[in-house]
């Protein structure tokens, strides 16, 4: 399995897509972190006061917001790209045990997610800590429950990577999967999760569960606790991975 995970890393690193996605994630993190701090304590600010624990949690959860969905796009692009570029045949000739290939893809993007999350956390902290210090707000990345938020960010981005790999393996169509995933995350799910009568089950939807994990606060949306959110989100990712294994092993590579 190590060999197959290494293969997925070699596929990723021999094209430039990973770098573009990382740069966009970094840019998103810089922009959103700056916006939150610049608007802090003003009317219409994005998060509660940055002197409060809740405000700091929201600030440090930012690193997951860009990197997670973007990594999922990268994972779909690579995994479903095997069908678009017809490299799936060579891949399954080298490794006829297709379910192991899908498992390796899911594990590889989990690991890539840890890397992306750490990079975005570093950027988030590099922007936030000196700026807040200059404003006279002393913040520690480790105190005030902030460390738990950073750990949740790492888990969230990693699980987004697994989700993308699983969906790509299940659906095989690059464009349709990326489009469908983004429409779901940014249009359909926000619409559904703001409808109060549905709040008994909306927290269990994949994106809302991910928000529960990092406690990315949105008014009018009911979230699970970090533990429950993390477990539910991971369960979705595993379900997508299993669907990917079943779909991939049943497909004729023509």
């Amino acid at each position: 399995m190590t060999q197959l995970v290494a293969t997925e890393f070699r596929k990723l690193l021999t094209t430039r897509m990973w770098l573009w996605i990382l740069l966009i994630s970094a840019a998103w993190t810089i922009m959103y972190t700056s916006l939150v701090i610049a608007l802090a304590n003003r009317h219409g600010g994005l998060v509660p006061s940055l002197s409060s624990a809740a405000g700091q949690h929201a600030l440090f959860a930012i690193a997951a917001g860009g990197a997670g969905p973007l990594l999922a796009v990268l994972a779909v692009t690579q995994v479903a790209g095997e069908y678009r570029h017809r490299t799936a045949a060579a891949t399954f000739l080298a490794t006829p045990h297709r379910q192991r290939v899908v498992a390796a893809e899911v594990i590889a993007f989990l690991l890539v997610g840890v890397g992306y999350a750490l990079a975005c956390i570093a950027i988030n902290l590099a922007v936030a800590l000196p700026w807040l210090s200059a404003k006279g707000i002393e913040v520690s990345a480790f105190g005030n429950g902030n460390l738990a938020v950073l750990v949740a960010v790492v888990i969230s981005v990693a699980v987004f990577g697994m989700t993308g790999a699983g969906l790509g393996a299940a659906l095989h169509s690059q464009l349709a999967t990326v489009t469908g995933m983004l429409l779901y995350l940014y249009v359909l799910e926000p619409l559904i999760s703001h409808i109060a009568p549905l709040h008994s089950w909306t927290p269990y939807l994949p994106g809302v569960a991910a928000d529960g994990l990092t406690q990315a606060v949105q008014s009018g949306v009911r979230l699970l606790s970090p533990w429950a959110g993390g477990l539910v989100f991971a369960a979705w990712a595993i379900a997508f991975a299993v669907a990917g294994m079943i779909s991939t092993s049943r497909t004729d590579i023509t």
């Binding site: 060999q3 293969t7 070699r10 021999t14 094209t15 570029h85 490299t87 060579a90 490794t95």
Partner: peptide, 23 residues
Amino acid sequence: LEAAGFYPGRSGRDHLRVYCTAS
């Protein structure tokens, strides 16, 4: 295979190295 597939942005050598690693 007929019309074998390659990722257009990857070099031929890197393509081969991917499958060296896989096998």
